[in-house]
Design a protein around this nucleic acid. Structure first.
Lengths: 138, 138
DNA sequence: TTTTCTGCAAAGGTTTTGCACCAAT
DNA sequence: ATTGGTGCAAAACCTTTGCAGAAAA
């Protein structure tokens, strides 16, 4: 049984065809996909898949921290698998291919400084980088 | 004439009552406001203000870099005045009060490292911090 | 007077909800 | 057999667009 399936079972959830389809689509991409795109690709795996179920599945997987949501400047959201220990996305502005990176060391330095400057206690952060991937630089 | 008015005139735009109302609301808050909230507060200044005009004004002010948009975890957007030289928002999760901070030095270090690791060329970044402001820590 | 701006209404797009049926355990 | 999940339809939102009238320059 795959790790994500164990995770769902432990949470008291069932393993279903729609959930398998969504996970399969997400495992096959390194571009953050929007719910509509996940639907279209997922229907090639499970033709009865509906958009509502995609939303509900993404919400579940996000709660379980198996999937994370990235923000786009236009306000839409894309979803990619969560990579353990790598929490931030770097997204190509041309082909939208995303890689994740760990920025914890530099972030800790920045956060400590901002906490000292502002008096705020920082609990969470949202960091995304945008640029050109190696292929699109040519 | 206020600086923001000069900025609009230079861009070939007119100074109107709805635009004054939106700017006044934004100058009186340190919490990022959603368009609907800007409408409600702006109507106390200019009762004819409509939601469509709020959106159009925010788009204009954002284009002119007088106002910046912040992302919330729930997917909504808030708007606050742009502070020169301070590009990132730190938002209190209890009272939503926001301060801006400059993180350029640490960000440059992080970006240089990520560029070296991934081969991407990084052009832009989205960074927001969330936590507790001094008042809400008690 | 000329051009831009505004407000309304309507459309467009994304996300959520209600409900009856279906499927996993 | 039970409980949770699914899909459809419709609702609820947020945001944009078309257009005629109003206001700034």
């Amino acid at each position: 049984m795959a790790e994500w399936e164990r995770c769902l079972v432990d949470a008291g959830c069932r393993i279903t065809a729609p959930r398998r389809a969504v996970m399969q689509v997400l495992r096959e991409t390194d571009v953050p996909l929007m719910p509509q795109e996940i639907l279209e690709q997922g229907q090639r795996v499970h033709w009865r898949l509906g958009l509502v179920t995609v939303y509900r599945t993404l919400a579940l997987l996000t709660d379980l921290n198996l999937v994370c949501r990235v923000h786009r400047e236009d306000g839409c959201h894309g979803y990619i698998l969560t990579s353990p220990g790598h929490r931030h996305a770097l997204i190509c502005q041309v082909c939208r291919r995303a890689v994740e990176f760990s920025g914890e060391d530099d972030m800790h330095a920045l956060i400590a400084r901002v906490e000292a400057e502002t008096g705020y206690q920082v609990d969470d952060h949202l960091l995304q980088l945008f640029g050109l991937c190696p292929d699109c630089q040519r």
